[in-house]
Design a protein around this nucleic acid. Structure first.
Lengths: 211, 211
DNA sequence: TATTATAAGTGACAACGTGTCACATAGCAA
DNA sequence: TTGCTATGTGACACGTTGTCACTTATAATA
């Protein structure tokens, strides 16, 4: 977390610092980026930097939090639009989310983030989700409440939450793979939908009875 | 790839260097590890190091390749044992593989590898690995040939290959998650089997017709 | 206005890590 | 002995990090 000192800064100076950092992080991974470059980009002194942030990571996570798309609303809306259908809801959500990431003006930043971070991203996504689960959506509704459960082999709400989480990590993994393999937006979307299809309907032919 | 000079070294010296590197990489990530420590551990001079390896990464990937379990045979055997059954074969394979990783004397090294693995490292290591060894199984047998296809919704062999690969990445992701959530071996295995079940049979109740 | 307390800004600096290079040494064949 | 090749070495230049004693700005108060 940035210090209070950082938040007290003038908007102009804050923007300068953020822009300088984004420039660095858009072409380099967290590990390759250097504070020296960032403070040079932003024309602030090295000493000042350490009055705002603990270290490079601190700044980086702040930026991720700042620019991360609030996927919860997108997800919620997607499921509402598709009347709670698991497959269609996720398809809608995933395709839109991929589009957002790939067409974002922060493209370079996101690309680097996905290519170089796995553990942290998953952890962040999970924490985010847990927060959303504990708290309540702005409208007072939760994502798990707008997913039609009667067409799913789900016994407990806990299991649904666990599936919903898993699909999020599948989406993130697919986006990552798309960046690495330099897939087009459409190819990345198709890859996600294919995996979603597997998970929704299974790769095995239907049994007489469900397991 | 290490240089010929490295391979020409006496077994004793090679072992000393590998041990020194494993010590460092068992407690630190690739980024946090330092060549300075490794050469100090192995009591070789800094200059020598650079005659054997291009850089830290070069050594790291060499070690991954050296100690990586040759999962192909384990996978092949598992499917043969389970008579080509997709679910049972993967269950058998995944459980054994997880056990191997977690009970390995190289535990610390693997733990660190999984915890700090990102997509780029993963893929680079894979490229290194493919380069070092032939792509074909020693016996000339392919895994896709021992998976019973008639119980799968598979049209082309390409699709099967793509599913098989995906399941491998699901397994790796699950192992990673197990490490950072500090799950027990059994919990990690159960998590993998649950996901395998989803992917095999789907989370949706069986349709009258498959899609 | 002068005084004072608090907040913010600064860059030199020590510590540490990297990759290189000119040079040293060992092994061996002619 | 001479020469050739392979291997070993550590000082060095360069870059990065986090700190710290010190300076400057801001604003409240006498």
């Amino acid at each position: 977390m940035p210090t209070q000192t950082f938040f007290n800064l003038s908007e102009e100076k804050k923007k300068r610092l953020i822009a300088g950092a984004m420039k660095e992080f858009s072409t380099k991974s967290l590990n390759d980026a250097s504070i020296s470059n960032i403070v040079k980009n932003a024309t602030i002194s090295r000493g000042s930097f350490y009055q705002y942030f603990e270290d490079k990571k601190d700044l980086y996570f702040y930026l991720i939090g700042k620019f991360r798309y609030n996927y919860r609303k997108l997800m919620y809306d997607s499921f509402v639009k598709e009347e709670g259908d698991f497959f269609k809801g996720y398809k809608n959500f995933g395709e839109k989310y991929i589009l957002y990431i790939r067409q974002s003006p922060k493209f370079g930043f996101f690309e680097n983030m996905y290519l170089h971070m796995n553990y942290q991203i998953n952890q962040e996504a999970r924490l985010d989700f847990d927060k959303a689960k504990g708290k309540v959506m702005p409208e007072g509704k939760r994502i798990v409440d707008v997913i039609k459960r009667d067409s799913l082999k789900i016994n407990t709400e806990e299991e649904l939450v666990s599936i919903v989480r898993y699909l999020l990590s599948v989406l993130n993994d697919t986006i990552m793979e798309g960046f690495w393999k330099e897939l087009s937006i459409e190819e990345t979307q198709q890859l996600f939908v294919k995996r979603l299809e597997w998970i929704t309907y299974g790769v095995a032919v239907s049994q007489k009875e469900e397991d």
